[in-house]
Measured scan of single mutants.
Amino acid sequence: RSRTNFTLEQLNELERLFDETHYPDAFMREELSQRLGLSEARVQVWFQNRRAKCRK
């Protein structure tokens, strides 16, 4: 699998939701992934990586 390149719109939406909650539930992830045209797994990994970045 190659690296996912997020569009600016996708990143803005992901960051907006991250500001609301660092741990979106499965329903939120599924709804977001459909809206952004990403797989739920990519959304989940993005949040994992974003939380790690936040801890640094």
Rank of each mutant, 00 (worst) to 15 (best):
R1E: 07
R1S: 05
R1K: 13
R1I: 14
S2T: 11
S2D: 13
S2P: 03
S2A: 06
S2F: 08
S2E: 15
S2G: 08
R3A: 11
R3Q: 14
R3H: 11
R3L: 13
R3V: 15
T4I: 08
T4Q: 09
T4V: 06
T4P: 12
T4F: 11
N5Q: 15
N5V: 11
N5R: 08
N5H: 05
N5M: 09
N5K: 13
F6N: 04
F6W: 04
F6P: 04
F6E: 02
F6S: 02
F6Y: 13
F6H: 03
F6D: 04
F6I: 08
T7P: 03
T7D: 12
T7Y: 01
T7V: 01
T7F: 01
L8V: 15
E9C: 09
E9Q: 04
E9T: 04
E9V: 06
Q10H: 06
Q10I: 02
Q10P: 00
Q10V: 04
Q10E: 06
Q10Y: 02
Q10T: 02
Q10D: 08
Q10R: 03
Q10S: 04
L11P: 00
L11T: 12
L11R: 08
L11E: 15
L11K: 14
L11V: 13
N12E: 13
N12Q: 13
N12P: 02
N12G: 12
N12R: 14
N12A: 12
N12F: 04
N12V: 10
N12M: 06
E13K: 04
E13D: 08
E13G: 10
L14H: 00
L14P: 00
L14C: 01
L14K: 00
E15F: 00
E15A: 01
E15L: 01
E15D: 14
R16S: 13
R16Q: 12
R16N: 07
R16Y: 05
R16L: 10
R16D: 07
L17T: 12
L17Y: 09
L17G: 04
L17N: 07
L17E: 06
L17V: 12
L17H: 07
L17D: 01
F18S: 02
F18A: 01
F18Q: 01
F18T: 00
F18H: 01
F18P: 00
D19Q: 14
D19N: 15
D19E: 14
D19V: 10
D19T: 14
D19P: 00
D19S: 15
D19W: 07
D19I: 13
E20C: 12
E20Y: 09
E20G: 06
E20V: 15
E20H: 12
E20P: 00
E20M: 06
T21W: 03
T21G: 06
T21P: 01
T21Y: 08
T21Q: 12
T21M: 07
T21F: 07
H22V: 06
H22C: 09
H22E: 15
H22N: 11
H22Q: 14
H22S: 09
H22G: 07
H22Y: 03
H22L: 04
Y23Q: 04
Y23G: 07
Y23W: 09
Y23C: 08
Y23E: 10
P24I: 00
P24T: 00
P24Q: 01
P24V: 05
P24L: 04
P24G: 02
D25P: 08
D25S: 11
A26F: 09
A26L: 10
A26G: 09
A26V: 09
A26T: 13
A26Y: 11
A26C: 11
F27Y: 12
F27M: 13
F27R: 14
M28V: 11
M28W: 01
M28A: 11
M28F: 01
M28C: 09
M28L: 11
M28D: 05
R29S: 06
R29E: 04
R29H: 08
R29V: 09
R29N: 02
R29P: 02
R29F: 06
E30K: 11
E30D: 08
E30M: 12
E30A: 12
E30S: 15
E30I: 13
E30F: 06
E30T: 13
E30G: 13
E31T: 13
E31F: 00
E31K: 11
L32I: 15
L32W: 06
L32K: 00
L32D: 00
S33A: 14
S33V: 08
S33I: 03
S33F: 04
S33Y: 10
S33Q: 11
S33L: 05
Q34Y: 05
Q34V: 12
Q34M: 06
Q34I: 10
Q34R: 14
Q34L: 07
Q34E: 09
Q34D: 07
Q34A: 09
R35W: 01
R35K: 13
R35A: 09
R35Y: 03
R35L: 04
R35E: 05
L36D: 00
L36Y: 04
L36K: 03
L36W: 06
L36G: 03
L36A: 05
L36V: 13
L36P: 00
G37D: 10
G37R: 09
G37F: 04
G37E: 09
G37A: 07
G37W: 02
G37L: 03
L38F: 03
S39C: 05
S39D: 13
S39Y: 02
S39R: 04
S39M: 06
E40K: 03
E40R: 07
E40C: 09
A41L: 07
A41K: 14
A41N: 04
A41H: 12
A41T: 14
A41Q: 10
A41S: 11
A41M: 06
R42M: 14
R42K: 09
R42Y: 06
R42A: 15
R42V: 14
R42C: 15
R42W: 12
R42H: 15
V43C: 05
V43W: 00
V43P: 00
V43I: 10
V43K: 05
Q44I: 10
Q44V: 04
Q44L: 12
Q44K: 15
Q44W: 03
Q44T: 09
Q44R: 13
Q44M: 08
V45W: 09
V45R: 09
V45Y: 08
V45I: 10
V45F: 05
W46M: 00
W46Y: 02
W46R: 01
W46Q: 02
W46C: 02
W46L: 01
F47H: 04
F47M: 03
F47V: 05
F47R: 01
F47I: 04
F47N: 00
Q48K: 15
Q48P: 02
Q48E: 12
Q48T: 11
Q48G: 08
Q48R: 14
N49I: 03
N49P: 01
N49L: 10
N49Q: 12
N49E: 12
N49S: 09
N49A: 11
R50V: 00
R50H: 07
R50M: 07
R50D: 00
R50A: 10
R50I: 00
R50N: 03
R50S: 02
R50Q: 07
R50P: 00
R51A: 04
R51H: 10
R51E: 03
R51P: 02
R51I: 06
R51Y: 03
R51S: 03
A52I: 04
A52W: 05
A52Y: 06
A52V: 08
A52R: 06
K53N: 09
K53D: 11
K53G: 12
K53E: 14
K53Y: 05
K53R: 09
K53L: 07
K53P: 08
C54E: 13
C54I: 06
C54A: 12
C54D: 15
C54H: 14
C54K: 09
C54W: 11
C54Q: 15
R55F: 03
R55P: 10
R55S: 13
R55C: 15
R55Y: 05
R55D: 06
R55Q: 14
K56M: 06
K56A: 08
K56E: 14
K56P: 06
